[in-house]
């Protein structure tokens, strides 16, 4: 992991859905080092702590990164005021472990809600060998479907209320996909309850699985130890740190609270 702190130009800013913003940042040094699954730690004007935002897409030729975030509180609200053409202060790319992609040929790629953006960088690698399952609360919350289709992947859209795509959870769609396909690996990012069910399904089907976790962070680089998550390491329970030991973990390492 090699990272830096700097102020970079926001090349474009779009609103994808209510309170969901899409920034493309010109940052050639960061883009050159960035890997799918890593994140950037964004300075929110007037706030004590930076906000970790997953990297959605990396364009090494153009030297750009794309990040998508949802306004969840005052800090992300301040970030949403950043204008196209202004500078954004980031520490990046962070995350000691992104998604491991190299050794796999076929994948099912799953995102839940604001967990969808980091899955685009994964889908871009697999192209037509990927199956993307995206889940959202409702039609108004749906994002990135054209982007996922453009990768060449088969795409399945699910909403909790059926107002777009099929009604139901991503886990229902996953089970159906696995009736006809046996991918080398399943990648996922989303709420804990979703990840937990996906890990169970992956295990029951004997398929490898990597998940991206979220936790409240302090420094973002691995020094302050606040973003602890429960894992198994060498047979013992160990509080790993999402920022440096993750944010991506192998399914068999992760422990969820009862």
């Amino acid at each position: 992991m090699k990272y830096t702190q700097g102020k970079y130009l926001i090349l474009s800013k779009k609103t994808l859905a209510k309170e969901i913003y899409d920034l493309t940042i010109l940052c050639p040094d960061v883009a050159a080092a960035a890997k799918p699954g890593q994140f950037v730690n964004v300075k929110a004007d007037g706030f004590m702590l930076r906000r970790p935002i997953s990297i959605c897409s990396i364009d090494k030729n153009k030297g750009t990164l794309r990040i998508i975030f949802e306004v969840r509180g005052e800090g992300t609200k301040a970030m949403s005021q950043l204008a196209e053409g202004s500078m954004i202060d980031i520490v990046a790319p962070l995350g000691g472990r992104g998604f491991k992609l190299e050794q796999y040929e076929t994948a099912v790629i799953i995102g839940g809600g604001i967990g969808n953006p980091p899955m685009l960088a994964v889908a871009e690698k697999f192209g037509a060998n990927g199956t993307v399952i995206s889940g959202f609360r409702n039609a108004a919350a749906v994002i990135l479907q054209d982007d996922f289709k453009a990768t060449g992947a088969e795409t399945i859209l699910c909403t909790d209320d059926g107002s777009a795509g099929r009604k139901g959870f991503v886990t229902d769609a996953l089970k159906e996909v696995l009736e006809t396909k046996k991918p080398d690996i399943i990648y996922a990012c989303g709420p804990d309850v979703m990840l937990r069910r996906i890990i169970e399904i992956a295990k029951a089907n004997g398929i490898k699985c990597q998940v991206s976790l979220e936790e409240r962070m302090g420094c973002g680089v691995g020094a302050c130890l606040v973003c602890a998550c429960r894992t198994i390491r060498n047979g013992d329970e160990y509080y790993a740190h999402v920022c440096k030991d993750g944010p991506v973990f192998n399914a068999e390492e992760v422990l969820f609270d009862e």
Binding site: G218, C224, V226, A228, Y238, Y239
Partner: peptide
């Protein structure tokens, strides 16, 4: 020491609370 269960941090006006617990 493994430290405390998360969450271990909370932002506050002009500050933050932490409860790492000496991990």
């Amino acid at each position: 020491r493994n430290g405390n269960l998360p969450p271990r941090i909370a932002e506050t006006p002009s500050g933050m609370l932490n409860s790492v617990g000496l991990q």
